[in-house]
Design a protein around this nucleic acid. Sequence first.
DNA 1: TTGGGGCTCATACTAAAGTATGAATTATAA
DNA 2: TTATAATTCATACTTTAGTATGAGCCCCAA
Lengths: 140, 140
Amino acid sequence: MKQIIIKFGILALLFSALIALSEFSIATKSYYTEFLIAISALGLLALGFSLKSYVVTRSSILKDDFTPDKHKLKMLQISAREYEVLQKVAEGYSNLQIAEALFVSENTIKTHVSNIYSKLNVKRRTEAIKQAKEYGLLKQ
Amino acid sequence: MKQIIIKFGILALLFSALIALSEFSIATKSYYTEFLIAISALGLLALGFSLKSYVVTRSSILKDDFTPDKHKLKMLQISAREYEVLQKVAEGYSNLQIAEALFVSENTIKTHVSNIYSKLNVKRRTEAIKQAKEYGLLKQ
DNA sequence: TTGGGGCTCATACTAAAGTATGAATTATAA
DNA sequence: TTATAATTCATACTTTAGTATGAGCCCCAA
């Protein structure tokens, strides 16, 4: 935020310099005037360029707000519980670890995982992870 | 590429317009001159902004050229062959499939995979995939 | 109130994955 | 030339993963 204020300060300075130059160009018709205007123009270009850089950087930093493609989840008929299990699978947990985390039996997790596979049309958890990410169900 | 040429064309036009204005301001000291200079300045700012947008878009499109963190690979002492196997693992292939793809036995792949695990300090392939991505060894 | 979906769980499997150990071969760096 | 690392493979395991089937429970909509 401090950066953007400084940049706008520079913008204001350059801008009034341009105005001043236009007045100055009336009095002294020197060759330097056009040169200075050119410099100002380039400065403004660079300023616009860097402002966009700032905006881009900001937005990419804040782009951690992942939300799964709920439309795709409904399309594939993946239930809330199944999705929960899918997330754990993608985090590298074993069926037993997931079972303990969700307070259910390992058999239950196996059932969920198997159902997820048939819905994603895959045969292994590594495939499921890859497919789910391609579908936008999990963050890359 | 066509776009960037058009943008530079607009830049050139605006630029000569600025020059012309500076000449014009000598002859007719009208109030519109400063206004026109202001417009030109804003135009240049916008141009710089959009140029950066173009550059960003280009680079993000071309950002598919992933290169693994070779320094990290050396640090972890992961060999070329092991890395090759790791990539296949991340693509969701089974040990047997990887073996067939690389024309070696499944036992060989198991050995490689086991060695990869100890180097990445994990116990499962799903964990290995996650860890490798965090280390910058595989593209997200 | 009946039927379907979602969640749970069990049993009984088969199939992969993963570990441990030892060893042969080849290339390569000291 | 001699260690050293990389690659290959085997045997013999143990452990997870995954499949198939059946079933009980709960909730909600028809």
